[in-house]
């Protein structure tokens, strides 16, 4: 039997299907899960061996973890989650038991998805695309998440950027926030938004806030892996910042060593005296 889940609302559709299949006693090995069509009604039933009907109530934390893990890029995730919920319902597995390999994998996938969502919240970079004469400012971003997280990650941006219009396009789906309405669509336009002049100021900040005297490149890349760099305007500076760090340290030391001459000292004193007097 084949179950095709929609690209938008995938997780909710999986949950509805999994309940139906379990109630009908459908064995996990007879189900082929896939994602693709926009309509959720492709429930192509073919006669297959059945087991006893299973109704399940899972603890809320379990449902949350499973639904989060279902955003993982792993193509086997739907089938695995179906097997796991059946085992949990029949009490062949206990929620919270991390020594169960299936549960352990699910929790690891959940963790990877959460990390990806968190990273997306940090690493999206908007560029201004306000059309002339508009009364709301508009911004757009191109982002490539590692997992299928756009729907779960988008409400954060709606809470944060409520007074502007914005759009985040990913290779599959796009989130659009216009006049206060959040929508998820299939991505139509794959072009990165045009360059924004404020990015230059951001790069100036990035280059100067870092302390060249304490290079820790591995610590940086463990949090900001190289694969994320291509959509970060500041990342292009990194190789140069690393390369010139020793020179900058030397220059810093030299500048610090050069105490101001008596002339400058007098001037500084005069300035502060004058300001006190004002």
């Amino acid at each position: 039997m084949q179950v095709v889940l929609p690209r938008i609302g995938t997780v909710a559709a999986w949950r509805a299907e999994a309940r139906r299949l379990a109630a009908a006693g459908v064995l996990p090995e007879t189900v082929l899960w896939s994602v693709g069509e926009a309509a959720p009604d492709l429930f192509a039933a073919s006669p297959a061996p059945r087991a006893a009907s299973v109704a399940f109530r899972l603890p809320r934390v379990a449902v949350e973890s499973i639904e989060t893990a279902l955003m993982h890029a792993d193509p086997e995730r739907f089938a695995r989650a179906y097997v796991l919920v059946l085992r949990l319902a029949r009490q062949e597995a206990i929620w919270g038991d991390r020594s169960d390999p299936a549960l352990h994998r699910l929790l690891e996938q959940e963790k990877a998805v959460r990390r990806d969502i968190h990273q997306m919240h940090g690493f999206v970079r908007f560029r201004e695309v306000t059309p002339p004469g508009a009364n709301r400012r508009a911004f757009a971003a191109w982002f490539e998440p590692a997992h299928h997280i756009l729907e779960a990650a988008a409400p954060f941006f709606a809470r944060r950027f409520g007074d502007m219009d914005w759009l985040i396009a990913t290779p599959t789906l796009t989130a659009r926030f216009e006049a206060g309405e959040l929508e998820i669509l299939e991505t139509a336009n794959r072009a990165t938004p045009p360059v924004d002049a404020t990015e230059d100021l951001w790069r100036v900040y990035f280059a100067n806030i870092f302390n060249p005297a304490r290079l820790m490149v591995n610590a940086m890349t463990s949090h900001m892996p190289r694969k994320t760099w291509k959509n970060l305007p500041e990342a292009a500076l990194i190789p140069d910042l690393i390369r010139t760090a020793p020179e900058r340290v030397a220059a810093m030391r030299a500048a610090e060593a050069a105490a101001p001459g008596p002339k400058l000292q007098r001037r500084l004193r005069a300035i502060s005296a004058q300001r006190e007097g004002r």
């Binding site: 990035f206 870092f210 940086m220």
Partner: peptide, 8 residues
Amino acid sequence: HAWAPDGR
């Protein structure tokens, strides 16, 4: 939002 080469 970003990580600097000093790991911060």
